[in-house]
């Protein structure tokens, strides 16, 4: 463990909690892409199958359990409890495409052709693009509530901090997982224009309205 990965995990945890608070307090999931949340749930489910077989640490296990539980809780809130507030007509990104491409890539490019390793690789590729429906939805509606932009900032920062973690691990531990690194770079890259808008607007108290 290193400080970059710890802050990254805390940022990821904060994003998930911010989203749950937003939906629970406002009793609404308006502006939230249910498709992205479905993809994140698939990411955690495929990646954490080793929850009971591969014990890394108490921290690792508790975080995995929390991420799994919170992602299922989030889709429950979106598609069941507050489904009347879900903007289905704005959440129109073809996310099936993201799943198919991630499956094909995971079958072609992986570290080992085994079930758990291919599912892990699939979860890495899928996570890199899972935010696209949410970013697409914001460009479609042209704006985002400030709490949603804080959620996105925390979520985008987490993988950016992981890149620093991978640089640290490469030089300090000689550890390198180029599949995770390349996917993490793509994932963080997708947030670039959002980060620019967040820093130039939301940080100054303005709303996140995209130039139409």
């Amino acid at each position: 463990m290193n400080v970059f990965r710890l802050i990254g995990d805390m940022s990821h945890l904060a994003a998930i909690i911010i989203l749950l608070i937003k939906i629970w307090r406002s009793r609404s999931c308006s502006g939230i892409s249910g498709k992205s949340q479905l993809l994140f749930t698939a990411v955690f489910t495929c990646r954490y199958l080793d929850l009971f077989t591969n014990f890394v640490s108490i921290y690792n296990t508790t975080m995995k359990i929390f991420f799994l539980a919170s992602s299922y809780a989030t889709i429950y809130l979106i598609f069941m409890k507050f489904k009347a507030t879900y903007n289905r007509n704005h959440d129109t990104f073809r996310f099936e495409l993201l799943i198919v491409v991630s499956v094909i890539l995971a079958l072609l490019i992986n570290h080992e052709f085994s079930a758990t390793e291919i599912l892990w690789t699939f979860s890495i590729y899928l996570e890199a693009v899972a935010i696209l429906p949410q970013l697409f939805m914001i460009t479609k509606t042209g704006e985002a509530e400030s709490i949603t932009s804080h959620y996105l900032f925390a979520l985008g920062s987490y993988r950016g901090l992981y890149i620093l973690n991978w640089i640290y691990r490469y030089y300090v531990e000689g550890h390198l997982d180029w599949i995770a690194v390349l996917s993490g770079i793509v994932q963080t890259g997708l947030y670039c224009d959002f980060f620019y808008l967040y820093i130039t607007r939301v940080m100054k108290g303005k709303n996140l309205t995209l130039p139409a």
Binding site: R47, N54, V56, M63, E117, N165, D177
Partner: peptide
């Protein structure tokens, strides 16, 4: 190199 048997990151 990567130790695939133990993906120790979240």
């Amino acid at each position: 190199t990567v130790s695939i048997s133990k993906h120790d990151e979240l």
